[in-house]
Computed example of a mutant assay.
Amino acid sequence: MTYKTTLSFTERHHRFLSEKVGEGVFASQSAAVAAALEQMMRDEEERALWLDFVAETVRARLQTPSDEYVDPADVFAAAKKDDR
């Protein structure tokens, strides 16, 4: 189902849409806006997946026993040694 709506654009956006339609990239300005919305939806879905992944990684690392922690002094000792 499609819905008819009214949108307002800046001159810059209108010119860009018109150019893309004129170049045949999109069949119409509506098609271009729909493609942009689809991309925004995909971007949001991807962002949500990454945030879930990061949150799960943080939760898993919070479960790491303290005796398994790495001493930062040991980790950066070689870099400090070369930083003469």
Rank of each mutant, 00 (worst) to 15 (best):
R47I: 14
A32C: 15
M41Y: 10
R84E: 10
Y3G: 02
S30P: 00
E56F: 07
A32F: 07
R59L: 09
A73M: 01
R12V: 08
E11P: 00
T64F: 01
V21W: 06
M40Y: 12
F76T: 04
S18A: 09
R61F: 07
E45N: 10
L62Q: 13
E11D: 09
K80F: 05
T10A: 06
G24L: 06
T6F: 02
R15H: 12
V75L: 07
F26I: 06
V25I: 13
L17I: 10
K81D: 09
V25M: 05
L51W: 03
D83V: 00
V70F: 00
L51I: 12
E68P: 00
F16K: 09
D43A: 15
F53R: 13
M40D: 13
H13Q: 15
A73G: 06
V54K: 10
P65Y: 04
G22S: 12
V58K: 03
R15W: 04
K81M: 07
P65R: 14
M41S: 12
R61G: 03
E19R: 13
L49K: 15
G24N: 02
A48I: 14
V70G: 01
R47W: 08
L7V: 10
L7G: 01
S30G: 14
A48G: 01
F76E: 00
L37F: 09
T10S: 15
D82K: 12
E45L: 14
L7H: 04
K81F: 07
E38G: 08
A34V: 11
Y3T: 14
R12K: 15
L49T: 10
F9D: 03
K4Y: 08
V25P: 02
L51P: 00
A27L: 09
A32W: 03
V54Q: 10
G24C: 04
A48Y: 07
E38H: 14
E45C: 09
A78Q: 02
E56L: 10
A35E: 12
D83K: 08
V70H: 03
G22Y: 00
P72F: 01
G24I: 03
T64H: 00
A27F: 03
T57F: 07
D43C: 11
D83I: 00
D82G: 12
P65Q: 15
D43Q: 15
D71A: 05
D71Q: 04
R15T: 11
R15S: 09
A60M: 11
R84P: 11
R61N: 14
M41L: 10
A34E: 12
E46S: 10
L51V: 11
V33D: 05
K4R: 15
A36S: 07
Q29L: 10
V25Q: 08
V21G: 05
K4H: 08
A36H: 11
S30L: 02
E45F: 13
T10Q: 02
D67C: 09
R42A: 09
D71N: 11
K81E: 12
E56I: 02
R59W: 08
R42Q: 10
M40S: 14
F16I: 13
K4C: 05
S18P: 00
D74C: 06
L37R: 13
L7T: 01
D82W: 07
R15C: 06
K20A: 11
V33G: 00
V75Q: 04
K4N: 08
L62E: 14
R47L: 15
